[in-house]
């Protein structure tokens, strides 16, 4: 796994995720990267990667909406001008 720091360089984060606890994809997986969004601009995130943590908060055991809410709040907060993602290429429930 790897820590990826995504600067809030655009008005949107620009990723779509699927998955969460109690689904076939137990941890959120990136399914789309929108061109022009902060994630795309960072060049760090890729489709297919699985998000293990957001700003040090584990997504393990979190259902889809809760995981999405955590990521949305990490993007919204003015405390930081970046989001740290712990990412793995391995699509498994670690």
């Amino acid at each position: 796994s790897a820590l990826m720091r995504v600067a809030k360089s655009a008005s949107t984060l620009g990723i779509a995720i699927e998955g969460g606890a109690n689904t076939r994809q137990p941890l959120p997986r990136i399914v789309t990267i929108q061109r022009g969004g902060s994630a795309h601009n960072s060049g760090q995130l890729k489709v297919g990667q699985v998000i293990l943590e957001v700003n040090g908060v584990s997504l393990r055991g979190k259902e889809h909406r809760e995981a999405a809410r955590l990521i949305a709040e990490a993007f919204k907060t003015k405390e930081k001008d970046y989001i740290d993602f712990l990412i793995t290429e391995l699509n498994v429930a670690l």
């Binding site: 949107t12 984060l13 620009g14 990723i15 779509a16 995720i17 699927e18 998955g19 969460g20 109690n22 689904t23 076939r24 994809q25 399914v31 789309t32 929108q34 889809h64 909406r65 999405a68 990521i71 949305a72 993007f75």
Partner: peptide, 16 residues
């Protein structure tokens, strides 16, 4: 484990 995995529903997709 595999059988259980297959019975789990697909996830919704959220754009962030």
């Amino acid at each position: 484990v595999r059988e259980k995995r297959l019975t789990l529903p697909p996830s919704e997709i959220t754009m962030l």
